[in-house]
């Protein structure tokens, strides 16, 4: 019993002291360093327009539906997709009929919208939902296939649109880490700014 009481005291004291250090001092220290060294990142890499209104975060995708924009990946976050308070994927497995039907419909829509022949394959990222539902990127091939449509509807020179895609592409770190991705949100913002 005496042994138990001294252990209980140790446990209570350890919980309080370790909570103070690891849940008080530590996150505060990170906060101070983060806000001093990398304030932009620490506050969400925000995109702010001329009037000071926050238009989104460079890292968080937004939903677009108009064919005048580059369209992002399908999203399973929230009811309507790209709900940044309900991140997540579809969690549908390889044998899911629901997923098969969704992929089939998305392929048909993608081909129709971009004038793709039946024989040409569709980029996988264009017809599948991401893990977070907030993926800000699309693949290079997906962007190039959408480029002629966007250029036509906006009356832009296709070469100019390709140039914009290139400027909004994030390439793999050190040339081999990760995959190249085109940031749909910053690209569409750049299109609107023209």
């Amino acid at each position: 019993m005496k042994e138990f009481l001294s252990q209980l005291r140790g446990a209570l004291a350890a919980t309080v002291v370790l909570a103070a250090v690891t849940c008080g001092l530590y996150p505060m220290a990170v906060w101070v360093l983060a806000q001093t060294l990398f304030p932009n990142s620490a506050n969400g890499s925000l995109l702010v327009d001329g009037s000071g209104t926050v238009r989104g975060s460079r890292r968080i995708g937004q939903g677009f539906t108009s064919p005048r924009y580059f369209l992002p990946r399908p999203s399973a976050a929230g009811v309507s997709g790209y709900d940044a308070t309900a991140s997540g994927g579809s969690n549908l497995g390889p044998l899911s009929m629901k997923l098969r039907d969704a992929v089939r419909d998305r392929i048909a829509a993608y081909r129709a919208m971009n004038g793709l022949p039946e024989t040409e394959s569709v980029p996988a990222d264009a017809v599948t939902a991401s893990g977070s539902g907030l993926d800000p990127h699309i693949s290079l091939r997906n962007a190039s296939l959408q480029a002629p449509r966007v250029a036509r509807l906006r009356g832009l020179d296709p070469a100019r649109v390709q140039e914009l895609i290139r400027r909004h592409t994030e390439f793999p770190a050190a040339g081999f880490l990760g995959e190249p991705g085109v940031n749909v949100l910053t690209l569409n913002r750049a299109l609107d700014a023209r």
């Binding site: 394959s121 569709v122 996988a124 991401s130 693949s139």
Partner: peptide
């Protein structure tokens, strides 16, 4: 779906 892209359901482009 392009076979070269692999299984992208639930995965991030980056």
């Amino acid at each position: 779906v392009a076979a070269a892209d692999g299984n992208m359901e639930g995965k991030e482009v980056r």
